[in-house]
Simulated scan of single mutants.
Amino acid sequence: MPRTPEVVDHLPAGASQVEPPATPEEGHHLTVDLVERAMSFIADAKQVAPDKPFYLHLCPGATHAPHHVPKEWADRYRGRFDDGWDAFREHTFHPERQLGVVPADAQLSPHEPDVPEWESLSGDARRLAARMMEVYAGFLSHTDHHIGRLLDFLKETGEFDNTLIMVVSDNGRAPRAG
């Protein structure tokens, strides 16, 4: 018999569970909590053994669904995607080519056949899809901001230049509108 997934409302720490310091309604966000705990872990490790290296594996939830981000972060992108996904692909591709991020002779990949044409969506579906893109972008920006806080912490503690940082990521999975 298949099991129903349970909602995880705590973090494991060793053999014990860590309750969140607040609820989402009170402003708690997992990314913030993870970064705070990472900084605390590093500070504790360096206090106990200042010359000993540490290992930290930070795994924020961004940008895998469900996309949870404070509203103000998503609202920063309001209107940015109103012209649709193909327009945004064009908007980002050409500057990347000019900057040399992609080769000068690169061509934009064809429209994904499983994704509906933007103009084929109803007005409501376009508004929903644009909002979903705003939330996705806000979630990524929110996570980037808090990872930046961790990097700033490493600089403040003198550990930045002595730290190997590897970023392994994908673009997440998002539900589709339309």
Rank of each mutant, 00 (worst) to 15 (best):
D114I: 14
H94N: 08
R78W: 05
V69Y: 06
R80N: 06
E117T: 12
D105T: 10
L128I: 03
E112Q: 11
R97M: 12
D86C: 00
P95A: 05
P103Q: 07
Q98D: 14
A129K: 04
W85F: 08
Y55S: 13
A130W: 01
R127M: 12
G84K: 04
H94Q: 13
V101I: 14
V102C: 03
A74C: 03
G123M: 03
G79C: 04
L128N: 01
R127Y: 05
P95Q: 09
R126H: 09
E119D: 15
S122T: 15
S122E: 11
L108F: 05
R89S: 04
H91G: 02
L121Y: 09
V135K: 02
L58T: 01
G123A: 06
D124W: 01
Y55Q: 12
P53T: 07
D83K: 13
S120V: 12
R78Y: 08
W85S: 00
L56D: 09
M133F: 08
A130Y: 06
V69H: 00
W85Y: 09
D86N: 11
V102K: 00
L121N: 04
S109Y: 06
M132P: 03
E72F: 09
P95W: 08
T92Q: 02
Q107D: 12
P113H: 04
E119C: 00
P66S: 13
F88H: 14
V102I: 13
L99M: 15
L99F: 13
A62N: 07
R97P: 09
R131E: 12
P70H: 06
C59K: 13
P53G: 07
M132C: 10
G123S: 00
G138M: 02
R80K: 14
D86S: 10
S122L: 06
A137L: 05
K52D: 14
G100I: 07
H67M: 14
E72A: 14
V102Q: 04
R80L: 11
F93N: 02
R76E: 11
P70M: 04
A130T: 06
W85H: 07
G100A: 06
P103H: 02
A104Y: 05
